[in-house]
Amino acid sequence: MLEKTNLKYYFFYIATSVIIVAGFKAASEVIIILLLAIFIASILSAFLNFLTAKKIPKLLAYMILISVLAVLILLLTYMLNSSLTNFATNLPDYEQKIKDSIVLLINYAQEFGFTVNKDEILKAINFSYFFKFTTDIIGNIGSIFSKALLVFIGVAFILSETKVFEKKLKVIFNKDKTRLLNFRLFSQNLQKYFTVKTFTSFLTGSFIFITLFFFNIDYPILWAVVAFLFNFIPVVGSIVAAIPAVLLSLVAGDFEVTIWLIVIYMIVNITISNVLEPKFMGKELGLSPMIIFFSLIFWGWILGIVGMFLAVPITMTLKIAFESANNTRWIGVLLSDLSRRNSRI
């Protein structure tokens, strides 16, 4: 039987969690910008440390990273806006071609005696929602760019405060060396996760771009960026990222290319997700598959579509934070995939 004191603590923690979640949901737009700035800064800080280790002055290294980030944001915004605009313009043609391909498949099936309601199937194929989604993105490109600018400024400030932040930690944990070591371990593991995940996502996008360019699929840069971003969403991300390119190959009427694309997408994602990531990341950073699934639902509900991209990084951050302290390590174990490591409990 639980003691009354412990019971009060449990209710207090539950009530506090509910209030925090409600606050996150109410302030989701601000939270998204803050989290993106923190996560991107965590990735870039690894490169900042690498440059300073090569005897490059910190100010010069800082300016190099910020300049590269600014150029990347501008290039990506321009290329995505251009690709999406052309894609939205050609979308009605793609819709008609896909319908024509489906009619051919239905006629082919009917030749073998299958009964297929052609009118119902064609009626069900409606690209209006996808067209609206694409045009909404194009229409809001200015808003997206302004938020990207806020993230950029946030990253610049966080990177500029790295050394000062370390001094603050030494002052805070002056009499508790264990907590300081735990926090450093947490920071190192978090940085390791983001660096490896970004690297593997970049590899995924690069391989997809080369493949699509080789097979002459429209908008290879756009679908490569989609593959890069959706690689941060486990399980369903790689499947969703493959759909546009596969559909465009079907539109072209080349079924052999379609099969090749499906096979290559599977090989790239399986190899990178199941071979490279565990090797570079380390088995100790693994999340339970159940936790991954529910984190996608939970953070997607709180932060929207961006929450699905950030679901695993946020949950991984919480797991690493919990495992860094002895009194909360049991929560980190609950979030872990113990099938991929030896328990140290």
Rank of each mutant, 00 (worst) to 15 (best):
I297C: 04
G300L: 11
S324P: 10
F131S: 10
L65R: 01
F199L: 10
F183D: 00
G154A: 15
Y13F: 14
S273E: 11
F294V: 03
P244H: 09
K168G: 09
Y94P: 04
V257P: 00
F114G: 07
F50G: 06
R344N: 11
L105Y: 13
I32E: 04
S336D: 06
G307E: 03
F298L: 13
Y193E: 09
N274L: 11
T52V: 10
L181I: 14
L122Y: 14
S42E: 09
N49D: 11
L48Y: 01
D119I: 07
Y193W: 04
F131W: 12
F294Y: 06
S143W: 06
L80Y: 05
L59I: 10
F131R: 11
I158N: 06
N327W: 11
S83Y: 10
L334Q: 04
Q191I: 08
I56R: 11
I259M: 14
I210L: 13
N274S: 04
S146H: 10
N342Y: 03
L44S: 13
A109S: 13
K167R: 15
S28P: 01
I56L: 15
Q191Y: 06
F202T: 04
N327R: 08
I31W: 15
V21R: 05
E166T: 12
V116Q: 03
W223S: 01
V312P: 08
E120T: 14
V240N: 13
K55R: 14
F11V: 13
V257Q: 05
Y9S: 05
I243R: 09
L60A: 04
S201F: 01
D93V: 08
V236W: 11
L276W: 13
V21G: 03
D93L: 02
K283T: 14
D254K: 14
V268S: 03
E111C: 07
F87E: 05
W223K: 02
E120P: 02
G307N: 02
I314C: 05
F293E: 01
A325K: 08
A22W: 01
V171G: 04
G304F: 02
S288I: 02
A311Q: 03
I297L: 09
K25P: 03
P278V: 15
T195D: 00
P289I: 09
